[in-house]
Design a protein around this nucleic acid. Structure first.
Lengths: 251, 251
DNA sequence: CGGGTCGTTGAGGTCAGTCAAACAGAGTGG
DNA sequence: CCACTCTGTTTGACTGACCTCAACGACCCG
């Protein structure tokens, strides 16, 4: 019971950050939000063969993963707390799965997504939902640029900065510090690098004094310098969250 | 006047392929579709600083292009006739522009997009629109996999095959032949390769007897073999168009 | 203690980028 | 008609970024 409340609350929080919700919208969300599900790091979160559901990440990190016939894996989109995981087009190829990158708690948004699609939702909810999707799309495009045009070093710094801004938006940073519970293997799979090379790149960022990285946490030492050398435009992401109530307490 | 009709007709055709339109939907489209615009190869199609409009490509090829501070360019999404160009998230960074890859005729879909967003549209139109957007998203993800996980050779073959299926869907192929009016420079910018290497890769595909490429046209000699060696899953794209009236006459 | 994952390091190979130059075709102007 | 330019393709030689293979250390947990 506690969990259901948490999911609803987290969802309202997340959407409200994108667009101020009317109380009617909050009521709708409370009615429709289902129970949460827990997964362990590495678990697949969709039944094999079924199309991906839309899952709100309540706590932890998740991603969509594409597996090639020969076993190569590509992490397509990372989703941190407050973001949505598991939206793909209709081909819904069986090679694409939603996977838990850490131990994770998620909530199924299928019903809400359907409601939004059918337009039976509060206008403020629609607006928030749309903004959220637009941001996700922008994030996709940024990653296309990363993979297509940037060197390994730029790519890595660039991604870290985006994750930092997204974390900040979700109220998950403290100063220049950000939790980053991903393994280097996972980072490499997202960045299109070998794990060995990803490791070396991270070390170089450290050596150059741009970041400190240790025990699932990254501290940015020179944000502006890193942004410059990584071709990242700071401030692109909607800035600081409007205001954060003492909410985001860890479950 | 002739042109306006063409744009409307092309739009109806394109949407109808995704989801059978009711006649009410067609009426709505006829009311809202604006005049077409012509651009020359290389032109930017949005006024600088303004957010990208949604443009239906009536004839020719277009793309969204991201330019890095140091001048590197990345073609994000290709749009061929019947597809939409110019959708990006709200950051709408000034570095992203809609560009004509060939001489091109487009129609502004802003009004229709707004109508769809506000839900004042026929249900079949909404469904068609949604399917179209989903396909575009799926295409984005495929390209992420290409750039992140595939070698230059696989990447190129894979892209060609996707373009082939998309062309076929739009009724623009004849047998195993497809028009491909892109320069190798443009292909390279989309594939994240140098033009020199893109050229060598294309030659290798030719040498291996997988394709014939010449004068803006590609002929696939061994579709299945190419798909296998390029990690492309044939048939992922909605198959042949329902039926093509003698419509797609070149303007 | 053994076995697991994760991070780290070294040596060597290869894929793909850079630089440079030459060639082909289309359009232009004399 | 022939230079002439411009864009696009092609080729060669060289360089370097990144990958592969392999092994090792740190840490956690049973």
């Amino acid at each position: 019971m506690r969990r259901v409340l948490n999911a609803t609350f987290c969802l309202i929080q997340a959407l409200d950050r994108h667009h101020r919700l009317a109380s009617e919208a909050e009521a709708e969300l409370e009615m429709l939000s289902g129970p949460t599900e827990d997964y362990l790091s590495g678990d697949y979160m969709n039944a094999p063969g079924t199309p991906l559901r839309r899952l709100l990440v309540v706590a932890g990190w998740a991603a969509e993963q594409h597996t090639l016939p020969d076993g190569r894996k590509q992490l397509l989109r990372l989703a941190l707390a407050g973001e949505v995981c598991g939206v793909v087009g209709p081909p819904s190829e069986s090679r694409t799965q939603a996977v838990a990158l850490t131990d994770v708690t998620v909530a199924d948004l299928s019903k809400i997504a359907a409601m939004v699609r059918e337009r039976h939702a509060d206008p403020t909810l629609l607006a928030a939902w749309r903004t959220m999707e637009a941001l996700r799309q922008a994030s996709d495009l940024r990653h296309l640029v990363r993979l297509g045009s940037l060197s390994a070093l730029e790519r890595t710094g660039n991604l870290l900065l985006e994750l930092y801004e997204r974390s900040a938006f979700a109220g998950l940073t403290r100063g220049a510090a950000m939790r980053l519970p991903l393994t280097q293997v996972q980072l490499a799979e997202h960045l299109g690098l070998s794990t060995v090379h990803a490791n070396r790149v991270i070390q170089q960022l450290r050596r150059e004094g741009l970041i400190e990285a240790q025990s699932r946490q990254v501290v940015f030492r020179q944000l502006a310098a890193l942004a410059l050398s990584s071709c990242y435009e700071l401030g692109t992401y909607p800035a600081a969250p409007p205001f954060q109530s003492p909410s985001q307490v860890r479950a």
